[in-house]
Write a protein that binds this DNA or RNA. Structure first.
Length: 346
DNA sequence: TCAACTAACACGTTTGAACGGC
DNA sequence: AGCCGTTCAAACGTGTTAGTTG
């Protein structure tokens, strides 16, 4: 990994704020899912993500302690339904569940430790159980989200509210939370890439499947079905993640955004309350916003709104203004509403 | 009637304890 | 005694699907 600004601009999957740089691992895998429209299963007892979040860091101070955490925030303020092999807007989003944060189990650790190897958030689990007691990330099904990664210079998770933090996110990690897979193309991708799903691969001697021959063969048909029979325009209908060609466009735009914004030395204090209002004026513009984007849903992708927000999200300008209104979070009271430490796996 | 959700299922993978050899 | 490698069983995680719920 290089640290030059040139590379920063040319590499779509890594971002640099101040001196800290973050790179998304398995970005190609993420992109392959993103192209189809990533779906993440959420269950009552918690389900891991696949692809899972894995990042690498550079530019940290080798001997300073850092806490690394991730939360998952809405990508827009609508809910979706899967209809006729495509996602459609089904109305306004549900009130957001409690915002929880997953703290990397190595936290706190010195910068040299974080930079030594990639950080995996494999064990982070998603749930739709709003009463969950295990600290899993609570999401609504049929809503779109994306993970946000926070790097906080702090000696312990209990003091992160006093430390400077920097936040990163990646456009290809946007996903739709579902309780059952809707898009068969996603199912095929998961089975192809996820080792735990090998028992469901074609040709397997799955007695359970054999007993349910009709449905299984139907499933096999879906898997064998040529992609052309399932995609067509439907794939990109209302998709904020802009499948297929849109992804490349997003990346391209991202590069433009990185040229436009100077993140050097940008640090702020701690995030907002349970609301998902952007608390970093420069963060969300980093999300790709296609210049020709006229789809409000797409625009919303860049400005995770708060359900109570009266602002009319939909333009980058508004979200920036909104972000500025929020400003740095230096008030510890804000933290009391923001359960950043509710979840870790240590 | 329909869409969304839940729980059970059987399989593969992962994990870690137990064991033996050096 | 300590280390290392192997084996094996239990735990875990997976997608599918019938049944349930609203």
């Amino acid at each position: 990994m290089q640290h030059s600004c040139t590379l920063k601009i040319e590499t779509a999957n890594s971002y640099q704020q101040g001196c800290i740089r973050m790179t998304l691992e398995d970005s190609e895998l993420w992109k392959s899912f993103h192209t189809v429209g990533t779906e993440m299963i959420i269950t009552k007892h918690g389900r891991r993500m696949f692809p899972h979040c894995s990042i690498s860091l550079s530019g940290l101070q080798p001997f300073a302690n850092y806490v690394v955490m991730v939360d998952i925030v809405p990508a827009d303020n609508v809910k979706y339904k899967w209809k006729k092999e495509q996602w459609e807007v089904a109305g306004k989003s549900e009130p957001q569940p409690p915002c929880r944060t997953y703290i990397h189990p190595d936290s706190p650790a010195v910068g040299s430790h974080w930079m030594k190897q990639s950080l995996s958030f494999l064990k982070m689990k998603l749930t739709n159980n709003t009463l969950d007691q295990h600290g899993h990330i609570i999401l609504h099904s049929m809503h779109r989200y994306y993970p946000r990664f926070h790097v906080i210079q702090a000696d312990s998770p209990h003091t992160v509210c006093w430390g400077s933090f920097q936040t990163f996110s990646f456009p290809e990690t946007v996903f739709t939370a579902v309780t059952a897979y809707q898009n068969p193309k996603i199912t095929k991708l998961k089975i192809d890439h996820n080792p735990f799903a090998k028992g469901f691969r074609e040709g397997g001697t799955h007695s359970h499947s054999l007993q349910r021959m009709p449905s299984t063969s139907q499933s096999a048909q879906v898997r064998k079905k040529p992609a052309s029979t399932q995609q067509s325009p439907k794939a990109g209908h209302l998709s904020p993640w802009a499948p297929e060609q849109d992804l490349s466009e997003s990346i391209h735009t991202e590069r433009q955004e990185q040229r436009e914004y100077d993140y050097g030395g940008e640090e702020q204090l701690v995030p907002a309350s349970t609301s998902y209002q952007p608390y970093r004026s420069v963060e969300y513009p980093r999300f790709p916003l296609p210049p020709r984007n006229r789809d409000p849903t797409e625009a919303l992708l860049h400005a995770p709104p708060h359900p109570l927000s009266t602002s009319e999200p939909g333009t980058q300008q508004q979200e920036c203004r909104y972000g500025n209104q929020q400003g740095p979070r230096s008030n510890p009271a804000d933290w009391s509403q923001y359960p950043l430490f509710s979840y870790s796996c240590w």
